[in-house]
Lab assay of single mutants.
Amino acid sequence: MQRVNMIMAESPGLITICLLGYLLSAECTVFLDHENANKILNRPKRYNSGKLEEFVQGNLERECMEEKCSFEEAREVFENTERTTEFWKQYVDGDQCESNPCLNGGSCKDDINSYECWCPFGFEGKNCELDVTCNIKNGRCEQFCKNSADNKVVCSCTEGYRLAENQKSCEPAVPFPCGRVSVSQTSKLTRAETVFPDVDYVNSTEAETILDNITQSTQSFNDFTRVVGGEDAKPGQFPWQVVLNGKVDAFCGGSIVNEKWIVTAAHCVETGVKITVVAGEHNIEETEHTEQKRNVIRIIPHHNYNAAINKYNHDIALLELDEPLVLNSYVTPICIADKEYTNIFLKFGSGYVSGWGRVFHKGRSALVLQYLRVPLVDRATCLRSTKFTIYNNMFCAGFHEGGRDSCQGDSGGPHVTEVEGTSFLTGIISWGEECAMKGKYGIYTKVSRYVNWIKEKTKLT
Rank of each mutant, 00 (worst) to 15 (best):
Q2H: 07
M8F: 11
E10G: 15
E10M: 13
S11F: 15
T16R: 09
L20N: 02
Y22H: 06
L23P: 02
S25I: 14
A26K: 02
E27P: 03
E27C: 05
C28L: 02
C28Q: 04
H34N: 14
H34V: 10
E35A: 11
K51F: 05
Q57M: 07
M65V: 13
E66R: 05
E66A: 06
K68W: 11
C69N: 05
E79C: 04
N80Y: 05
T84M: 04
F87V: 09
W88C: 04
K89F: 05
Y91K: 13
V92D: 14
Q96I: 08
E98R: 10
L103R: 09
N104E: 02
N104I: 00
K109S: 07
I112K: 13
S114R: 06
E116N: 03
C119N: 01
P120H: 05
G125R: 00
T133V: 14
T133L: 07
C134W: 03
N135M: 09
I136W: 08
K137N: 14
K137D: 15
C141R: 00
E142D: 13
Q143N: 02
S148V: 08
N151D: 09
C155T: 00
S156Q: 09
G160F: 02
Y161P: 01
A164W: 03
F176E: 03
P177I: 01
G179L: 00
R191Q: 07
A192S: 12
A192K: 12
F196V: 12
D198V: 11
Y201Q: 13
N203G: 11
T209Q: 12
T209G: 14
I210Y: 06
T215Y: 08
S220F: 07
T225R: 08
V227Y: 10
V228R: 13
E231P: 10
A233I: 07
K234P: 06
P235F: 07
G236A: 07
N245A: 07
K247N: 12
D249I: 06
F251E: 08
E259V: 06
K260N: 07
I262S: 00
I262F: 02
V263E: 00
C268F: 01
E270I: 09
E270S: 05
T271K: 11
V273L: 14
T276A: 08
V277Q: 01
E288R: 06
K293N: 06
R294F: 00
V296T: 03
A307G: 14
A308V: 09
I309L: 09
Y312N: 07
I316A: 02
I316D: 00
L318S: 00
L319I: 07
L319Q: 01
E323G: 04
E323N: 10
Y330L: 05
C335T: 00
E340F: 13
F348M: 14
S354N: 09
V359G: 13
Q370M: 04
L372M: 10
V374T: 06
L376S: 04
R379C: 06
A380Q: 10
C382L: 03
C382H: 02
L383I: 10
T389A: 14
A397E: 01
G398C: 02
R404G: 15
R404Q: 06
Q408K: 12
D410E: 15
S411C: 07
P414F: 10
P414I: 13
E418T: 06
V419E: 02
S423V: 08
G432M: 05
A436F: 06
Y441I: 10
G442E: 04
S448P: 02
R449L: 10
E456G: 06
K457N: 15
T458G: 03
